[in-house]
Structures are given as structure tokens and as C-alpha cells.
């Protein structure tokens, strides 16, 4: 079983990385979205591996089923054609900075993992949704409410942006 888990981990990591590269390197916005979807699916697989199918299904339901569809809607409204602005490659400066960011973060993380390897944590226990719900409304109630405030702020911000643009015309 442990070997299977390792193989699954490798496959999911590969999916996440390939999706990420496709999302960054793709010439068309819709292809980039497909890369994003692959990454999200890989992350859902990781949740499965952590024995939390509820999180995995929610990840697929919300991010793949709803958020990506809405992103596509936004892309379609902008009429992004093949020869659009985003199809050109980014300037050299931007590429160098991005590469620097990747190597610094990746380097620090891999240095940490290599020098302080985690001893086996054991098989994760599946938490029932009943426990999850009670936790969200009980001990973690404040965090749960704060997240909804963040969503409210985002929504209000979107309305505000649209409002100003309409007044400007």
C-alpha cells in the first residue's frame, strides 16, 4: 500500500507541475485555464491521499465546476483572440524576476525538507463531515466568519469597481 501511495503522490505532483507550467506558458488564455484545471485536480488528488475525500470533492465541485467556468465566462467576454496581448512573450526582466522567485522559494523549501526530514506521520485519519461541521461552527467559528467577511469585501470591491467605471463614462 505504501508503494501505491508513493506512486500516487508522484503522479499527482507531476500533474500539478505540468498544469502549472501550462498555465504560465500557454499562449491562449483558455489553454492556460486548462492548465489551472489540471493543477486543481492534482491538488484534489493530494487531498484524497490525505484521506479527506470531502475536501477533494469540494475542491472539484467549487474550483473546477464553478470557478473555472466563471473564469471562462470572463475570458469569453474580453474576446481574447489568438493574436491578443497575452500571446506575446513577457519581457526579459519579468522572466528573470519570476525565475528568481521560483528558485528562492523552491530552494528554501527543498533545503528545509532535505536537512530536516519529517519522520513518518502515520496514516491520516478520515474526519467525518459531522465533526467538520461542528468544528466550523464551534471552536473555529471566528475563522469561519472571517472568511465570509473576506468574500463580502471581495464582492463589494467588484461592485465598487464596476460602479466607478460606469460613472466615468
Amino acid at each position: 500500500m505504501e508503494l501505491m501511495a508513493k506512486i500516487a503522490f508522484g503522479v499527482y505532483t507531476l500533474i500539478i507541475l505540468c498544469g502549472g507550467i501550462l498555465a504560465v506558458a500557454a499562449k491562449s488564455l483558455v489553454r492556460a485555464m486548462v492548465g489551472l484545471i489540471a493543477t486543481l485536480l492534482g491538488v484534489a488528488g493530494m487531498y484524497m491521499l490525505l484521506n479527506s475525500p470531502f475536501m477533494a470533492f469540494m475542491q472539484i465541485l467549487i474550483y473546477v465546476g464553478a470557478v473555472c467556468v466563471l473564469i471562462f465566462f470572463a475570458v469569453m467576454l474580453t474576446r481574447a483572440d489568438a493574436g491578443g496581448e497575452e500571446a506575446e512573450s513577457a519581457p526579459l526582466r519579468q522572466n528573470t524576476l519570476a525565475l528568481l522567485a521560483v528558485t528562492v522559494v523552491g530552494g528554501v523549501l527543498s533545503w528545509l525538507v532535505l536537512t530536516h526530514p519529517v519522520a513518518g506521520t502515520g496514516v491520516p485519519v478520515e474526519v467525518s463531515i459531522e465533526k467538520l461541521g461542528l468544528g466550523l461552527l464551534g471552536p473555529y467559528g471566528l475563522a469561519f466568519e472571517l472568511i465570509s467577511v473576506v468574500l463580502l469585501v471581495a464582492m463589494a470591491g467588484a461592485v465598487l469597481l464596476a460602479w466607478e467605471r460606469r460613472n466615468g463614462k
Partner: peptide, 13 residues
């Protein structure tokens, strides 16, 4: 139930 609802989203996508 959740599995069905989650993967049904692929059709529209």
C-alpha cells in the same frame, strides 16, 4: 452524493 455532484461539473466544462 457529493462525488456525483462534483464530477458532474466536468460536462459543462
Amino acid at each position: 452524493v457529493l462525488l456525483i455532484i462534483a464530477f458532474a461539473g466536468f460536462t459543462g466544462l
